[in-house]
């Protein structure tokens, strides 16, 4: 199943007010993305990783696997930024398929900056998704005057994801245990059958749900239970101090590190 969602409900920080965690993640994310140095993203990466591992107690192995997830994009993106064709002031070059790929000091500098910035901000994203459940994020979005229709769609999609995911997982396992994915031809055949049957099953589920709702006087609105949380003054103070210091540092160190 979807492990990130599981950890969001069962981590050690689950009793902390979601708005506190949300604002820590978002403020740090914005400061990291806006920063123009290697230093600030490195700090936010270190602090966020420490909070994720030590305070929220997410297993190290799982967190490491998450960090490897965007590796291909990061690798390809950073490589394209770092290399140029036939650059004059290069510090290193590679001859490949008849073209000279060069790396210059300035492009390397930019590539390293993008790399650290991405790692720093992705740790903020991971802190958010690993400690704040989706239902709480939707509650927070409600306070920001997001269109109600959009939020309702978010809620319905979230409820259905798990139903459909389970159905698909079961069919996939049974197909696989019957050698359904042995070669390319079979894979395409099995996959197209899997997707079309899940499509039809989803439509059936939707009909069932609608009948169930209608028999209980559904008027078009959903109401969900909201858990109560308490604000902690210490947490708010620490979040403001941390982000304040980070902001001040990025302000004073503009382009220096």
């Amino acid at each position: 199943m979807i492990y990130i969602d599981k950890y969001a409900y069962f981590n050690r920080l689950k009793d902390v007010h979601p708005v506190e965690k949300f604002s820590l993640a978002i403020f740090t994310l914005f400061i990291t993305v806006a920063s123009n140095s290697i230093f600030i993203p490195a700090i936010s990466f270190a602090i966020m990783s420490l909070i994720i591992l030590l305070a929220a107690r997410i297993p190290l192995f799982f967190y490491a696997k998450l960090l490897l997830l965007p590796l291909f994009f990061l690798f390809a993106g950073v490589l394209s930024v770092a290399t140029n064709l036939n650059d004059q002031d290069m510090i290193c070059s590679v001859l490949f398929t008849g073209h000279r790929f060069c790396v210059s000091a300035s492009s390397l500098n930019e590539a390293v900056k993008i790399f650290t910035k991405s790692m720093g901000s992705i740790s903020c994203l991971y802190f958010l998704v690993l400690t704040v459940p989706v239902t709480e994020i939707i509650n927070i979005l409600k306070k920001f005057k997001t269109p109600i229709l959009f939020l309702e769609l978010l809620v319905i999609v979230y409820k259905f994801i798990f139903i459909i995911f389970e159905t698909m997982d079961r069919i996939y396992i049974s197909q696989k245990s019957r050698m359904g994915y042995e070669n390319y031809k079979l894979s395409y055949k099995s996959l197209s059958k899997l997707i079309s049957s899940v499509f039809i099953i989803s439509l059936k589920r939707y009909e069932d749900l609608y009948h169930a709702l209608e028999s209980r006087c559904f008027t078009g609105d959903f109401h969900f239970y909201q858990r109560k949380y308490n604000f902690s003054k210490i947490n708010i103070f620490v979040i403001f101090m941390f982000d304040g210091i980070l902001l001040a540092m990025s302000f004073f160190s503009r382009g220096q590190f």
Binding site: L149, E152, L153, V155, I156, V157, Y158, K159, F160, I161, I163, I164, F165, M168, V198, F199, S202, L203, R205, Y206, L209, Y210, L213, F218, T219, G220
Partner: peptide, 16 residues
Amino acid sequence: SKVKILLGVAGAFMFV
């Protein structure tokens, strides 16, 4: 009002 749920299911399907 059925459309809302139908679109929600379609979104969930796309996600999966």
